[in-house]
Design a protein around this nucleic acid. Structure first.
Length: 300
DNA sequence: CACTTGACCTGTCCGC
DNA sequence: TGCGGACAGGTCAAGT
């Protein structure tokens, strides 16, 4: 899915687009896509207004005036796309000059077969929850109960918070002494928000082989990794996140971080630091991209 | 306990 | 162009 920078980008987009809108109706393909009772939906969703949009780790929260919150995890292929059908740019796509297809834009074709939930606002704009692989979930619950979700109780600190120190970073990683550094980076209970892309990118930045065991890493290496994790994720947010395959922001647009990626999905290309050929290996049963020259194992 | 491996799904790409 | 298998941004439950 979307990792921290992608979810943050969606959050910022939705914040601009849907705050104070009032929900008119909701439709979904089946009960599994929206597991709340119809009475809860009637009472706490329909008619309520959007008061805030928040993110914690890779989880999005849309707060409602009913004191309920829509909690959403996009997992691998989830999308939250806002469409304002009153805009001529969307409704006028049947008017064409010249040949070719009318449009490639995602928003012009929604809903599509990946659409699982459609929220319609009073002004007839829509928020679509699309999810090709159906791993994602959306759930309505009292705002005060959100912190009690198992995931929220377990999840580690936000790495981009200003008060998140390198000391805390190093301390957290001691929880996983005998696992590989890649596995520890992906563990959301250690720190929040790192996924496969930014794990590979930050390990390359710190010149650490992803198979290195946690307890073999020096403080200097972990300090470097701390800086790289924050650098890579902040940079990606600036670029609107990464579109590897499915990810789009709240307006249906792709992120451009992949244009700047150093190793991720760049196997066979050259390392931007030493010009060696980037290879793809498997670590923690995930596809993993490294420069075998910069990231030696063991490399102390 | 700490750690690893399937399972959840659909779609796409690659090799035969 | 058909078919099988591997693989894809994540997280749990169940296994060792």
């Amino acid at each position: 899915m979307p990792e921290l920078p992608e979810v943050e980008t969606v959050k910022r987009g939705l914040h601009k687009l849907i705050i104070s809108k009032q929900i008119k109706s909701v439709t979904f393909d089946n009960q599994k896509s929206f597991p709340n009772s119809s009475s809860d939906i009637e009472e706490f969703l329909i008619g309520s207004k959007i008061t805030n949009v928040r993110r914690r780790a890779k989880v999005l929260m849309i707060d409602l005036s009913s004191k309920y919150t829509l909690v959403i995890h996009l997992k691998m292929t989830g999308q939250l796309v806002f469409v304002n059908y009153s805009k001529p740019s969307v409704t006028a796509n049947s008017v064409r000059f010249g040949g070719g297809h009318p449009t490639d834009s995602l928003v012009d074709n929604l809903p599509d077969k990946s659409t699982r939930v459609t929220i319609t606002f009073k002004d007839d704009s829509h928020l679509f929850f699309n999810d090709q692989r159906k791993f994602g979930w959306i759930r309505l619950m009292p705002t005060l109960e959100v912190p009690n979700i198992d995931f929220m109780k377990r999840v580690g600190p936000e790495p981009l918070e200003v008060d998140f120190t390198p000391e805390e970073f190093i301390e957290r990683f001691k929880r996983r002494p005998n696992t590989t550094i890649k596995s520890a980076l992906l563990d959301q209970s250690v720190i929040a928000g790192v996924g496969n892309i930014y794990a590979d990118e930050s390990l390359w930045g710190a010149s650490i082989h992803p198979k290195r065991l946690m307890n073999s890493l020096t403080r200097t290496e972990l300090n470097k990794l701390y800086k790289e994790v924050r650098y890579v994720m902040n940079f990606s947010i600036e670029k609107g996140g990464s579109t590897n395959r499915n990810y789009v922001n709240a307006e249906g647009k792709k992120g451009s971080y992949m244009d700047f990626a150093r190793v991720f999905r760049r196997e066979g290309l050259n390392c931007p630091r030493c010009n060696s050929e980037i290879i793809k290996i498997k670590v923690a049963s995930r596809g993993t991209h490294i420069c075998p020259n910069c990231q030696k194992y063991p490399n102390i």
